[in-house]
Design a protein around this nucleic acid. Structure first.
Lengths: 102, 102
DNA sequence: ATTACATATGAATATATGCTCATATGAAGA
DNA sequence: TCTTCATATGAGCATATATTCATATGTAAT
């Protein structure tokens, strides 16, 4: 195949796809997203269930928020986070299934 | 939800899923895998088409080989690489589609 | 206003990652 | 065997990433 005959991806698309997969590439974020795919959670609950510090969780939520993969609603002092991108959750679940069935 | 009521992912699964997405998280590897999903390529061809050094391509192929995402066959001095994990290619193409349609 | 609680954020640090450069390996032909 | 070509690999470096620690912000109750 000649160099000009390829169907190329624009660098914008490549960067976007890279961002999606980067979000899913970290064990901590995988656990957070999987947890949020099961139920809406507040920050401390996530920290307790996943046995990590409040700060670490909050930093990761901040990143996931920037990528619009999660959203939250406030109830008093508490913020309840949930998933905001079903497609990305679908990618995650497919990878989990794939991994579980070798 | 109580801490014990969650469906947890084993750390082995989490690590595996993380490895898959890490492989897909780098722009260079996205381009290589997308190219290989279109045609079998030798190393120099990949380097030329993607305008990167032979060494950089070879390092990335080495990683993709270890993860069994690509395979190769030899023809004389030349190695022809191709995709070896249709499921991962499927994840990649879904992310591309998603990204293209905003 | 003061305090307590829930969460966010900035700086610092440690580790991971991707590239380059130089060199090694390995196959094929002279 | 010597050379050439295709690819692989190791060391070193620069950047990115995830965490911790300390502190800030913001809400609600007293």
């Amino acid at each position: 195949m000649n160099k000009n005959d390829h169907s190329f991806l624009s660098s914008e698309i490549v960067e976007n796809v890279s961002l999606i997969f980067k979000a899913l590439a970290d064990p901590t974020r995988i656990k957070i997203l999987y947890l949020l795919s099961q139920e809406e959670c507040n920050v401390n609950h996530i920290a307790e269930v996943l046995e990590m510090s409040q700060s670490a969780v909050s930093h990761q939520l901040s990143m996931l928020r920037n990528l619009r993969l999660v959203k939250y609603r406030r109830e008093g002092k508490t913020l309840f986070y949930s998933c905001d991108d079903e497609h990305v959750i679908s990618l995650l679940k497919q990878a989990i299934d794939h991994s579980e069935h070798h």
